[in-house]
Every structure is written in C-alpha cells, then in structure tokens.
C-alpha cells in the first residue's frame, strides 16, 4: 500500500464541489467586491489620479492587487472554514480513521483551498478584462504561477488557523489583525516607491508586496513591478514549501484534532 490516490482524489473532489455548490458565499462575493472597486477607483477616483507610472493608468495599476486580494481571501477562507467546521462537528474523524496517509489528507484539503483561490482569481481577472478596456495579461505563465502559489500559501495558513482556533471568534483573529492590514499595506493601492524612505523599508518586509508585485509583473510587465521577479518567486516557493510542511507536521501529531 504505497499511496491511496483514490482517497486523495475523493477528498479533493469533496472540497472542490463544496465551494462550487456554495457559490453565493464563495465565488460571487469576491467578484462583486472587485466590480465595486473597479467602479470606485476606475471611474470615480482613477480619473483624478491619472497615470501612476508613465503610460499605466491607476485602474490598471490596482487590478493585479485586486485579483491577489480575492485569491488570498478565497483560499484562506476555504480551508479555514472547511477544516474548522469538520473539527467542530468531529466529522474530521472520517478522515482520521481512513486509510489515507496524513500527507494525502493535508494535500487534499489544501489543494481544495488552492482551487478556490485559482477559480476566484481567474474570474476576477476575467471581469477586469471585460469591464476595463485595455486590461491585458502580458505573461499568463507568471500570472498563473503567482495566483496558484499564493493560493496554496493562504490555503495552508487557513489550514493552520483552523487547527489552532478553538472558537469562531479566534478563527477570525488571524484574518482581522494580521492578514487584512498586511494586504492593504502590501502595495495594492499605492506605489511603495512613493513612500518616505523609512516606510519603504518597512513595506519591503511585508511578504504581500512580493505577491502583489509578482502578479503585477505578470499583468503589466517588468517595468511597473516594484520587486524583483526572482526574489518574489523565491519567497513564494519557500513560504509554500515551509507552510505545507508545517501543515503536515501539525496534522501528523494530531494538533488539536487527536485526543
């Protein structure tokens, strides 16, 4: 018995069909939010701001950030809510008593969250392309790598917080006090280079900056991105591998799921 591929596929299928069935909670809201941002920043404020960099309008500048925000929320929320509810109802036992390996279970859950991030990110991109004339993705490959890897990272973080939290209140702590501020300060709506020097240093310690600018590189090309592509790729690969390993470790020792 080397691998239980069917078990893994069953779990992944369950996780993906779960968020597809709950589209009004999982897929539609981030698309609506993105449209609202486009209306406010594109039509209302964007025209006053003008070009943020030579030849790039403000609305085109923020689109990769909007996509990244939707990817982060979608993937984080998928694993955090799915796993926390399973813990809450003890339905997690169904997986614990099964003949799947710990890694297959972790991967099934985490890739389910990643899938939601990719689906939502793809849809938001599509909406932006349709609604905002001139929006294009210059490198689909780079865009896809950043969307999927960041989705994986936040899916892992959702997994970890679902194991850690002992109440719905605690489950939301991480998102409210850490994720949201980091996202908004990560260069979605402004250029870090326009900040005072000290704040530039602080901003460059925020990993979100590399996620947003990596995707910006994919959408708008190297000229607009504020972080080197190789550094950004290194950061997402290290974070994704490290967090996946941490998820596996916590699950293997039964952190807050085995008595």
């Amino acid at each position: 018995m080397s691998t239980n591929l069917l078990g893994f596929r069953t779990l992944l299928f369950r996780e993906v069909t779960r968020f597809l069935r709950l589209g009004n909670q999982t897929i539609i809201p981030p698309v609506i939010i993105a449209v609202l941002y486009l209306l406010i920043f594109g039509k209302s404020l964007g025209d006053r701001i003008g070009d943020i960099v030579e030849g790039v309008s403000y609305i085109h500048f923020i689109i990769p950030g909007l996509v990244m925000m939707s990817v982060i929320s979608a993937s984080y929320q998928n694993t955090s809510s799915s796993l926390f509810i399973q813990r809450f109802q003890r339905a997690i036992d169904e997986l614990l008593v099964s003949s799947m390996s710990n890694f297959e279970i972790v991967l099934g859950m985490v890739l389910g969250g990643m899938a939601r991030g990719v689906v939502v990110g793809g849809l938001v991109t599509l909406v932006c392309v349709i609604l905002v004339p001139g929006t294009e993705v210059v490198s689909l490959g780079i865009a896809f790598v950043f969307i999927s890897m960041v989705a994986l990272i936040f899916s892992c973080l959702g997994f970890i917080s679902a194991l850690w939290a002992d109440s719905f209140d605690r489950l939301s702590l991480f998102q409210t006090y850490l994720l949201t501020p980091l996202i908004y300060l990560g260069g979605v709506f402004f250029r870090v280079s326009d900040l005072p020097d000290v704040w530039q240093v602080v901003a460059r310690c925020n990993p979100m900056l590399y996620f947003v600018n990596g995707l910006r590189h994919g959408f708008l090309g190297a000229g607009v991105s504020e972080a080197s592509l190789s550094l950004s790729v290194a950061i997402i690969v290290v974070l994704a591998a490290g967090l996946l390993a941490l998820c596996h470790h916590l699950f293997r020792i039964g952190y807050n799921i085995k008595s």
């Binding site: 078990g7 069953t10 299928f13 369950r14 109802q89 003890r90 339905a91 169904e94 099964s98 003949s99």
Partner: peptide, 20 residues
C-alpha cells in the same frame, strides 16, 4: 461525528472513497 449537512448516500460514498 458527521457533517450534519451532508446527504446520506453522499456521506457513505465519500467514506468508501477515503478507503480507496
């Protein structure tokens, strides 16, 4: 210890799947 929103047959089918 089950998902209260799951449907009976679906729940059993998934469990069989986890066991390959």
């Amino acid at each position: 210890n089950f998902d209260i929103f799951s449907r009976v047959k679906r729940l059993l089918m998934f469990q069989g799947g986890y066991f390959g």
